[in-house]
Amino acid sequence: MSVRDVLRGIIGIELDENDPFGRPARRRTLDISHNVILYLEDITVSFDGFKALNKLNLTIDAGELRCIIGPNGAGKTTMMDVVTGKTRPDSGTAFFGQSIDLASLTEAQIAHAGVGRKFQKPTVFERHSAFGNLELAMTADKRALPSLVARLRDEERDRIADTLRLIGLGGEADRPAGLLSHGQKQWLEIGMLLMQDPRLLLLDEPVAGMTDDETMRTAELFVSLAGKHSLVVVEHDMAFIEALGGRITVLHEGAVLAEGDLAAVQNDPRVIEVYLGR
């Protein structure tokens, strides 16, 4: 246990790893000077010899809205696990912007650097109110000791209320999240992502369990977020993907099979074979 770890945890001071005098680190700044927000290069992940990702290469531009499709087991969720630090790749490099090496950061540090994630199965804090879920997600000093004395400011309250309205939960602020419907939980989790104000949003099957109407409203929301944020959306729902209108990457057996706009991908013979051939 290093002095740096102790200081970080106990008095909440983050020391710069490379500073010989151990002075507090600057916030990790995202460098998108080459207009790229995410680089995955030759990423391989194996589970007991089975390669869930097999030399995966993927580049996401800043402000882009990218859809990822692919059959079950193609490695879509595993790709998000690698980006968010949940799974460490066996080989390959993952960079957030030009300078942030994701392999060297913990899950919480990756979140602070600006990556937000929605899980495939909606995951919210069921015993906390909808308001409380957004409050915990909101950008803030998220270290243990500072949170002992953290108080909500008026403008933070307003921001939470605005987000609640945006995700259609304005009337459910005090309701425990565990009692919301499946679709409402999906929206709440999206709201939590927004409160984090991430630069890159990873959304794993965000409209599963939503009605057609909710699905289309979600598409509108995502389209409005693109530009300021970069989004990577994993989905099966073709109507939803069409409404998003972004570039599409097809994953198959842990690698990229095809990439392009919807028409190009749908007419690609390899894609047709994977989806229809067996």
Binding site: K86, T106, T123, E135, A137, K142, S147
Partner: peptide, 24 residues
């Protein structure tokens, strides 16, 4: 009752969710 306590129960109930919104 503090925010610390609410994060503690959040970690109890959904640890990975808490990690991915930035709590260690």
């Amino acid at each position: 009752n503090s925010k610390y306590g609410r994060v503690l129960t959040a970690i109890r109930d959904a640890e990975s969710r808490a990690m991915f919104i930035g709590y260690d």
